[in-house]
Design a protein around this nucleic acid. Structure first.
Length: 583
RNA sequence: GCCCCUAUAGCUCAGUUGGAUAGAGCAGCGGUUUCCUAAACCGUGUGCCGGUGGUUCAAAUCCGCCUAGGGGCACCA
């Protein structure tokens, strides 16, 4: 599944060069340095940098290894660099340079670049996959919005981040379950029920005082009309704490909101594998079991009539109440039970997406899983910052009372699923996101999502054109073009495209390991830009055109087109943004 | 008071784990079309990388302190 990347090949080459040099006595480790070969146990230390340099003039990859290691050998950086260079025996380079203060710069040979590009075509939809997860059962929980109101734009960012990150995990061989945790019990549902009862009685002309902490949105009124339709005037005289009315209406409202939330997600192409009910935790006795487990393991104590969880033992700032002095259970306990259930269901890796306002909650959750005997690294809580909506250059205030409240579904109908998904993805989670509605709607290449999609559509257009001129554009034919044909791709523009396309696996791996799905957007835009630039060159200079009467050159360039298309399509596929055939 | 996040060009933001001369898009200015889609491309930047001290061959990046903005610190859920 995993592809050998240039990176691993170069690392191996450097490592072998050091070993060769050591064996021939060219370099000698200082006495006080320990470790196999003086480098590391069989491979280069993590601290050694090997990456594409910013400046193209410094080659395709550069390493700082001799500056890092020269002291171990009592050599100057340049001396060690020269020795490494002289001992490298790998055919994948066309040139290796040593530059002050001690960098070694590697230039990939053209054959290597062609070989890499051919692998893109043969891997096709599998290009970019890297095995990181080893098939590990992974639970990604995101967008667990309380079913007490419509889904907002900040939650929209979360569901897209969660969904795309799930795709990235799938692409890197994790067995992913997308999960929605539904808080379908407790005070907020009671509150919702009470709010509906109030609106219901209001419609019937009864005197009511709306609950202070009730839900004020118009959707509550709408629900009240529906329950009036369904139940008639049966609850006209319901008092403010009439539990039957509150339960019945709360249940109705909650189910309706859940459906709307899931519908909104579906509109954004998000489909959950499981909706896990908080209520079921109680019904199945999991909350009691979890409490017993913690008690048995000596992780609780009694104080002031309440039962406390000794979470400070696991790094939390304070202990948490599990059972209140009135004998009711806290949300914290439910949550521990929920996460215990996740592990008990067989998941080995848990990802939780939460808004930045849940920061205070993370410590106790990490404490909880450690109390359950799990490794802290088996769970990762990802916090994302909020979204600011911009319309006509003005910030759109997101007050629930105001009329300009932006609900996710409205945004999606206005900007479309492609642009909405792409825009929510564009920034790293840690950063606040400014969502420019006008730009998202714009059908121009100022809009990054259109720019990338257009690149794909244009490639497709060129293939169609070639087809109409009698070229065979079948992928199997392209995949089997002889090397001599592919070697006709030799201009710097063409080589840059091939090299950029081959970076995808590296980008994917980095994005997964660093929880940085936004890098997909940047990468897609970079590749699209290189291609658009090449394409336009053909406008002014016929020798750069793809489809010409020169059959062999045309076939070589169709190969290039396929490389770009496959790469863009795979990236957009992970984002679940359409890769259109035409625009 | 304590904790988390953020601060990079006029604006919105990247910055591949500490590397070489800090980048992109937009806006602005100047160009390009007999042509596979101009829904495009090319050129053009005097940036205290919030401030300050430190670590080192090397700091936007790591550490300390300070400033500004956002969020959080319940026997709520």
């Amino acid at each position: 599944m995993s592809q050998e990347t240039n990176l691993t090949a170069i690392k191996a080459a450097i490592y072998n060069a050091l070993k060769t040099a050591a064996a021939s006595g060219k370099i000698k480790l200082n006495e006080n340095i320990s470790g196999v070969d003086g480098i590391c146990d069989g491979f280069l230390p993590e601290s050694i940098g090997l990456e594409p340099p910013r400046e193209k003039a410094f080659g395709d990859f550069a390493t700082n290894i001799s500056m890092k290691l020269c002291k171990n050998y009592s050599l100057k950086p340049l001396e060690l660099a020269e020795i490494i260079k002289d001992n490298i025996k790998s055919g994948i380079f066309s040139k290796i340079e040593v530059k002050a203060p001690g960098f070694i710069n590697f230039y990939l040979s053209e054959d290597t670049i062609y070989k890499n590009a051919k692998s893109i075509i043969s891997l096709n939809e599998n290009f970019g996959k890297v095995d990181i997860g080893g098939g590990k059962p992974t639970n990604v929980e995101f967008g667990s919005i309380n079913p007490t109101g419509p889904i907002s734009v900040s939650h929209g960012r979360q569901v897209v981040l969660g969904d795309v990150f799930s795709s990235l995990l799938e692409f890197t061989n994790h067995k992913v379950t997308r999960e929605y945790y539904c808080n379908d019990t407790g005070n907020q549902i009671k509150n919702l029920g009470r709010s509906v009862v109030s609106r219901y009685r209001e419609i019937l002309g009864e005197p009511v005082t709306f609950p202070e902490d009730g839900y004020h949105g118009d959707y509550v009124v709408e629900i009240a009309r529906e329950v009036l339709e369904k139940y008639g005037e049966k609850y006209r005289r319901a008092s403010d704490d009439d539990s039957e009315a509150i339960t019945v209406f709360g249940d109705y409202a909650q189910k309706k909101m859940l459906k709307e939330i899931l519908d909104d997600c579906a509109q954004l192409r998000i489909k959950y594998d499981t909706v896990y009910s908080e209520k079921s935790l109680h019904d199945d006795g999991l909350v009691e079991q979890t409490l017993d487990f913690l008690k048995k393991n000596g992780l609780t104590y009694e104080k002031d009539g309440a039962t406390w969880f000794l979470s400070t033992k696991f790094g939390d700032d304070k202990d948490r109440v599990l059972v209140k002095s009135d004998a009711s259970k806290t949300y914290a306990l439910n949550d521990i039970a929920y996460h215990k259930a996740k592990y008990d269901r067989g998941f080995q890796y848990l990802i939780n997406f939460l808004g930045a306002d849940h920061h205070g909650y993370t410590q106790r959750l990490y404490a909880a899983i450690m109390a359950l005997g799990k490794d802290r690294d088996s769970m990762r809580i990802l916090l994302h910052q909020f979204v600011t909506m911009l319309r006509d250059g003005q910030v759109v205030r997101m007050s629930k009372r105001a009329a300009n409240f932006v609900v996710l579904s409205e945004l999606v109908s206005e900007a479309g699923a492609d642009a909405t998904r792409y825009f929510f993805l564009m920034r790293k989670m840690d950063a606040h996101l400014e969502f420019d509605i006008n730009l998202a709607k714009s059908q121009s290449t100022d809009n990054p999502v259109y720019y990338v999609q257009y690149c794909h559509a244009r490639c497709n257009g060129i293939l169609k054109e070639a087809q109409s001129r009698g070229y065979n554009t079948d992928i199997n034919h392209i995949a089997n073009l002889p090397d001599e044909t592919i070697k006709l791709l030799s201009s710097p523009e063409e080589m840059d495209i091939l090299k950029k396309a081959y970076e995808l696996p590296k980008i994917i791996e980095y994005a997964v390991k660093n929880y940085a799905p936004h890098l997909l957007c940047h990468y897609a835009e970079e590749l699209a830009k290189l291609f658009q630039s090449f394409y336009t060159k053909g406008k002014n200079d016929a020798s750069f055109r793809v489809v010409t009467d020169n059959r062999e050159l045309t076939e070589a360039r169709l190969f290039l087109i396929c490389v770009v298309m496959i790469t863009i399509r795979n990236v957009l596929g992970i984002m679940k943004v359409n890769a259109p055939e035409r625009m």
